[in-house]
Amino acid sequence: MFKLPRKTLINFILVASAVLLVSIFLSSFKNPAQKIFKPHLSFVGLVKHEVSGIIFYHRNMIKAERLQNDVDWLRWRLFGLRELSQENARLKDLFNFKQKSSLRLVAARVIGRTLDSWSSSVIIDKGRYNGIKSGMVVICPRGLVGSIVESADNTSKVLLINDPNQGIFSIVQRSRQAGLVNGTLGTNLIMRYLPDDAQIMVGDIIITSELSQIYPKGLLLGRVVNIGREFSGLNRYALVKPAVDLANLEEVLVIIP
């Protein structure tokens, strides 16, 4: 069926070699390509944002009313907590606690998402010119978002925490039980390598551990929604619902160390 003449075979080998060369030097194509795409990606993102605002007007109105109620309640709570905070500050001064250095953050807007369903990443509109480098941590006010895997001049690629390539050393906030949190491409993350007698239960909060090389300690990852036994029977695992709505990210903050 596939009988090849000599000339076609040579042509095929030439094309295959060219393709292989391109694939080897893929990284050199990334920066110029992302530079070309950035302006209209930002524009299309803006249009998409506005159009979905109009389409989902009613849903957004209901949501805004509910959020307004939450804001009123939280304001009332904040009033009480302010007193406690002031007392805490006074006590810290008294005990001469070392003040933690505040994190330097760069705000960025999400301008694109991954092109396929086998990875989970977003493209943000800040890059090397803004001091963003590969390996930096990305958060949003609700919790951990991911880490920078590539940074071009004006854009960067963020690998989200639900990508299978992510492995985050984490702990259970209540019991300090350690485990490794991986992405699964699904709605939940999976916390693995939990021993049989692990101190973990549904509803526990998972945060990053200080043993993690990339992520600062104490960043919120999510809440345990299910616990099960691994196929091998040796360990247990926990399914963790991320605190951040990763499907609807719009703005993120990059931590500059």
């Binding site: 393709v19 694939s23 390509a33 992302q34 795409f37 092109l115 990443s121």
Partner: peptide, 19 residues
């Protein structure tokens, strides 16, 4: 190639496969 440029992998799988 356009697909690979925007994926977080270093391998150009799609460039090779599409060819």
């Amino acid at each position: 190639l356009a697909k690979d440029v925007f994926l977080p992998w270093t391998l150009a799988m799609n460039t090779v496969c599409f060819g």
